[in-house]
Design a protein around this nucleic acid. Structure first.
Length: 357
DNA sequence: GACCCGTGGTT
DNA sequence: TAACCAAGGGT
């Protein structure tokens, strides 16, 4: 056990990554990084992390910000509940803990958006507390170290015990960072670089030559494909109608161009007209197609058929959303949109620029 | 415990 | 191209 720890720590001090959130011990900054890194790769997070700490440099600054500012800063990162929970948790830290991030595991776990792995990640990194973690990297490393004969999801309890048994009681901060780096840079999902691994002598998978077969994969359900009709509705003032999605569920709190699912046998145009009547209570005329956007979410994929539309009658009502608003094209970038909708905005910009040019 | 929740990169 | 996967948590 001791030689395992020392081998990993020695490797880390030689080959570990230099990352901005390792240059600080500010619990808030480390917390922000841990939330952004959930299910998201380091390379993707880096620019968001730097910008976030410029916009919201303290937990107090985040707590007093408007949710729309917070979502705008998160725009493009995905899993937007992370941003909403981080915002709520910042308000809880200010109100319940006098703006001081708690150092007690059970208290940290109470904060929205922080589970067992994130709590351990923050407390070990910020306070050097010996609390184990079990993220995707650690699961893969341990599945190979143990030659786990089942998918990691079927052995969560065993993997937690293993992570707790392994963590170095003297250098828990470095140990947790080191095992994640090992998974990210050496014990990779495909073609692991076992020759460079400090644990190759201890790794059951390597010694059996089955490291490429592990961890065993989960059986996945095929993801459905939805065809969606989307409306860019113009009024006589040259404004566009957008709506804000409800807080709960997919893309909660973000703005979008209204629309909905095409029913079997229905044309795109008929779908758009029907959906706008049902969701906003107005009549429109459906015009030319603007763009077709294909986009993959985590559990389904969509094709957005986007059409220019003209407002005919009725005042838009927030029937199936939180808010509706008429906005100018130039104002759209003030609102947080999902990625698929940013492509629509780009298409509108190009069309507008072409008209002028 | 199963399902829901985004996006980008890689193969 | 389609499939797979990444510093998980909430319900």
């Amino acid at each position: 056990m001791i030689s395992l720890r020392q081998a990993l720590l020695t490797w880390y001090r030689q080959s570990g990554r230099t990352l901005p959130w390792r240059q600080t011990r500010d619990p808030y900054a480390i917390w922000v990084s841990e939330i952004m890194l959930q299910q998201t790769q380091v390379k993707t997070v880096l620019p968001y992390y730097e910008r976030w700490l410029t916009l919201f440099s303290t937990v107090q600054a985040l707590a007093i910000a408007e949710q729309q500012q917070v979502l705008k800063a998160w725009e493009g990162l995905g899993y937007y509940a992370r941003a909403r929970n981080l915002h709520r948790a910042a308000q809880a830290v200010v109100l319940k803990h006098n703006g001081v991030f708690p150092s007690d595991f059970a208290t940290v776990m109470q904060l929205p958006g922080i589970g067992r792995t994130t709590a351990g990640g923050i407390l070990s990194a910020a306070f050097n507390q010996p609390i184990a973690i079990l993220d995707g990297n650690v699961k893969r490393v341990l599945a190979r170290l143990l030659a786990l004969p089942v998918p990691p999801k079927r052995a969560i309890t065993q993997l937690w015990h293993c992570s707790e048994a392994l963590i170095d009681p003297t250098f828990p901060r470095d140990f947790n960072q080191a095992i994640m780096d090992l998974g990210a840079t050496v014990c990779t999902p495909q073609q692991p670089l076992c020759a460079n691994c400090p644990w190759k002598e201890h790794c059951r998978a390597y010694n059996q030559g089955i490291q490429a077969e592990l961890p065993m994969s989960e059986t996945r359900v095929p993801i459905p494909h939805k065809v969606i009709g989307v409306a860019v509705i113009w009024n006589d003032q040259g404004q566009i109608l957008i709506d804000r999605r409800r807080q709960e569920g997919l893309l909660g709190g973000l703005w979008e161009f209204p629309g909905g699912k095409v029913e079997p046998g229905e044309t795109i145009e008929a779908c758009i007209q029907r959906e706008i009547r049902e969701e906003l209570g107005i009549e429109i005329a459906v015009g030319d197609r603007l763009i077709v956007v294909d986009h993959a979410y985590s559990h389904f994929r969509v094709t957005l058929n986007v059409h220019h539309c003209r407002h005919v009658s009725g005042k838009p009502q927030a029937i199936e959303c939180d808010e509706v608003r008429w906005v100018a094209l130039a104002e759209l970038d003030q609102y947080p949109f999902p990625k698929a909708n940013l492509q629509i905005i780009e298409a509108l910009r190009k069309g507008s620029a072409k008209d002028e040019g």
